[in-house]
C-alpha cells in the first residue's frame, strides 16, 4: 500500500516516463482484479448490502466477466459512478467495464467512443402519477410539472415527447432517485418520470403503493448494456460474448446447477461448444476452454440472474416482457456459438 503511494508520488513528479499501454485483457490479468464501473445505487441493479457486498443485475455482469477472465467472480473492484462521471471514468481507464444501466445511443457509441457489448436490459421511460389526479394517459399531462433526474437520457426523451405531442411541461430537476421520490411524494411535481423498471421499484417501496399509478405509455427505447472503451476490440469481444453466453445458456437450459453435468453429458453441439467440450472458442480470444462455464457458474444464466435480482419473486417484481428469450416472444437473441 505504502509503496504504491510512494511510487505514485514519484510518478506525479515526473520522475518516471510513461510506458506503453498493454491491452485491457493483459492489464486485468496482471492486476488480478476487474475494475467494474457500477451505479452508486439503483435498487435491483447495483447496490452494496449491509456487509458492503455488491449485488444486483448489473453487478452480475461484472462477476460473470471476472469469472470468465480471472476464474473467480469475486475478483471485482466495484467503482461506483454517477451519471455525470461514468464516461470519463471509462475513457480514462479507471474502469475496464461500465456496467451501469447505460443506454446505448448513437452519440455515446460514436462520439463518446464507447463500444456497447450488447443489451442486458430493454427498458423504456414511463410516468407515475397520483391516482387521485385522475390521469390515465401521458397525453393528458399537458401543462403539468414533472420530476426528472438531470444528466440522463430520460431528460432528453421527456423534452422530445412533449414537443412531439405539442404539450408543455415544467421540469423539476432532481439529482438522485431518492430525491425524486421525496419531491414526488411531497407534491412538488404532478408526475415522476424515469425508466419503467425504476418506477416499478419506487412505487413498490411507497407506504401506499395503491395511491399511485404508472401510466401505460412507454415513451422511449432504453436499451441498457455494458460498455467498454473504443479501440480494444479483443476486450470488447470478451465482454460481448460473456453476455451472449449467459443469454444462450438460458436458451439451451444450461443453469448454474446443471452446468457441470451438461458439460460432460450434453449431446447438443452448440452447448458442447459453449461449455468448451468441442472446438476452441475460448482460445480465440485468449481465454481457456472453460470461460463460459465459469461465467455461468458465477451467478447463473441470464434467466437466473434476472429472477434473483429484479424478477417477479423479488419485491421489485419486474416481468420479463421485452427481456424474455426470442423463443418466448422477447428480444433476447444470442448469436450462434461456432
Amino acid at each position: 500500500m505504502k509503496r504504491t503511494v510512494c511510487l505514485g508520488a514519484l510518478a506525479i513528479t515526473g520522475l518516471s516516463a510513461g510506458f506503453a499501454s498493454a491491452t485491457t485483457l493483459e492489464d486485468v490479468k496482471a492486476r488480478g482484479e476487474l475494475n467494474c464501473g457500477v451505479n452508486s445505487g439503483l435498487v435491483g441493479f447495483a447496490t452494496p448490502d449491509a456487509n458492503g457486498n455488491w449485488v444486483g443485475f448489473d453487478v452480475a455482469i461484472c462477476k460473470a466477466v471476472a469469472a470468465a477472465v480471472l476464474g473467480d467472480g469475486s475478483k471485482v473492484k466495484y467503482v461506483p459512478l454517477s451519471s455525470q462521471n461514468r464516461f470519463t471514468a471509462l475513457s480514462s481507464g479507471e474502469v475496464d467495464i461500465l456496467s451501469r444501466n447505460t443506454t446505448w445511443t448513437f452519440s455515446r457509441d460514436v462520439d463518446l467512443k464507447l463500444d456497447f457489448a450488447g443489451v442486458n436490459y430493454y427498458d423504456g421511460q414511463g410516468f407515475m402519477v397520483r391516482k387521485d389526479l385522475g390521469v390515465t394517459s401521458a397525453k393528458e399531462l399537458d401543462g403539468s410539472t414533472v420530476c426528472i433526474q438531470t444528466g440522463t437520457t430520460t431528460e432528453l426523451n421527456l423534452a422530445d415527447y412533449f414537443k412531439a405531442n405539442g404539450m408543455e411541461y415544467q421540469p423539476v430537476s432532481v439529482d438522485t432517485n431518492a430525491e425524486g421520490e421525496q419531491q414526488f411524494l411531497a407534491g412538488a411535481c404532478d408526475s415522476y418520470t424515469t425508466d419503467a423498471s425504476g418506477l416499478a421499484a419506487t412505487r413498490a417501496a411507497f407506504a401506499n403503493p395503491d395511491d399511485y399509478v404508472i401510466l401505460p405509455e412507454i415513451i422511449s427505447k432504453e436499451p441498457l448494456g455494458p460498455a467498454v472503451r473504443h479501440g480494444d476490440n479483443e476486450w470488447g469481444d470478451i465482454v460481448r460474448w460473456t453476455l451472449n453466453a449467459l443469454i444462450a445458456a438460458e436458451e439451451y437450459g444450461v443453469t448454474s446447477t446443471n452446468v457441470e453435468e451438461l458439460a460432460s453429458s450434453s449431446e447438443n453441439p452448440e452447448v458442447r461448444r459453449l461449455l468448451g467440450q468441442e472446438g476452441d472458442l475460448g482460445a480465440m480470444f485468449g481465454l481457456d476452454a472453460d470461460w463460459a462455464k465459469r461465467a455461468i457458474m458465477a451467478g447463473g444464466n441470464y434467466g437466473e440472474i434476472f429472477a434473483a435480482t429484479i424478477g417477479e419473486s423479488t419485491p421489485i417484481g419486474l416481468a420479463r416482457g421485452l427481456n424474455a428469450q426470442w423463443t418466448q416472444g422477447g428480444l433476447l437473441y444470442a448469436p450462434p456459438f461456432r
Partner: peptide, 19 residues
C-alpha cells in the same frame, strides 16, 4: 483529482484516490 490525473499519470500507476 479523480479523473484528470488519470490522463496524465502513466497507465497502471496506482495512485491512491483518498491520498
Amino acid at each position: 483529482a479523480s479523473t484528470l490525473l488519470n490522463y496524465f499519470l502513466p497507465p497502471g500507476t496506482n495512485f491512491d484516490i483518498i491520498l
